[in-house]
């Protein structure tokens, strides 16, 4: 299972690298979103995909899964949710103001 997850993370990372290197604003955002997904999945995988009951008090099981990575990922997901929403609106406003979503044209020149 770990091998499969790691391959998935690798695919996510490579796809996101490709998308970030494109010129369109929206694709860059998608790339960034996929990158954070990859990072979250990596965190989950690296901290061990153990067998065990969900870490809830009511379960009364003998062994529990490690709850910490899940808490960390939940935090990270919430943060990336907020930031992505912000980034989308920012990209939309940039597009409105500059009338383009081509990053080549959003470069600006050296001496302004």
């Amino acid at each position: 299972m770990e091998i499969l997850m790691i391959i998935t993370v690798g695919v996510l990372f490579s796809v996101s690298t490709y998308l970030i290197l494109t010129k369109s604003l929206l694709r860059v955002i998608l790339g960034i979103v996929l990158l954070s997904h990859g990072a979250h999945l990596l965190l989950l995988t690296m901290s061990g995909l153990k067998e065990g009951a969900p870490p809830l008090l009511g379960e009364g099981a003998e062994s529990y899964a490690d709850p910490l990575p899940q808490a960390l990922i939940l935090t990270a997901i919430v943060i990336s949710f907020g930031v992505t929403a912000f980034l989308l609106v920012l990209a939309y406003r940039t597009y409105k103001e500059h009338k383009t979503d081509d990053l080549d044209q959003l470069r600006g020149n050296a001496d302004e």
């Binding site: 008090l57 009511g58 939940l74």
Partner: peptide, 8 residues
């Protein structure tokens, strides 16, 4: 709190 659920 003790079961799945919560404010979020």
């Amino acid at each position: 709190h003790n079961n799945p659920g919560g404010g979020f």
